[in-house]
């Protein structure tokens, strides 16, 4: 039987289709009976969506930062 440590690793491998059908079956069964691993799995899915979505975070530069970038670029371009 697959334990939680193996199951959490297998979730990752299943996503990339790197599991044999037998292991996939074992993983499915484990997730069916283990609330903790199922929760781990579901939460990570949310996290993955957040990570790959560029609109989920938008840090901005201050006007000051932008003008200092402009000054440095100008200096660099005129150097050559």
């Amino acid at each position: 039987m697959m334990n939680c440590k193996q199951a959490t690793r297998a979730i990752e491998q299943a996503n990339e289709h790197r599991l044999s059908w037998l292991k996939r079956l074992e993983l499915r069964f484990h997730l069916l009976i283990c609330k903790s691993c199922m929760l781990f799995h579901k939460q990570w899915e949310i996290l993955e969506r957040l990570l790959s979505d560029p609109s989920s975070s938008s840090q901005r530069l201050s006007e000051e930062d932008k003008s200092s970038i402009l000054i440095k670029i100008e200096k660099e371009i005129h150097k050559s």
């Binding site: 560029p54 975070s57 938008s58 840090q59 530069l61 402009l70 670029i73």
Partner: peptide, 20 residues
């Protein structure tokens, strides 16, 4: 050079957000 300036103003935020 003036295109570049416009680019900095328009695109530095998304680029910064991406790389940060």
């Amino acid at each position: 050079e003036s295109d570049l300036k416009t680019w900095v103003l328009d695109y530095s935020d998304p680029l910064y957000s991406y790389i940060f």
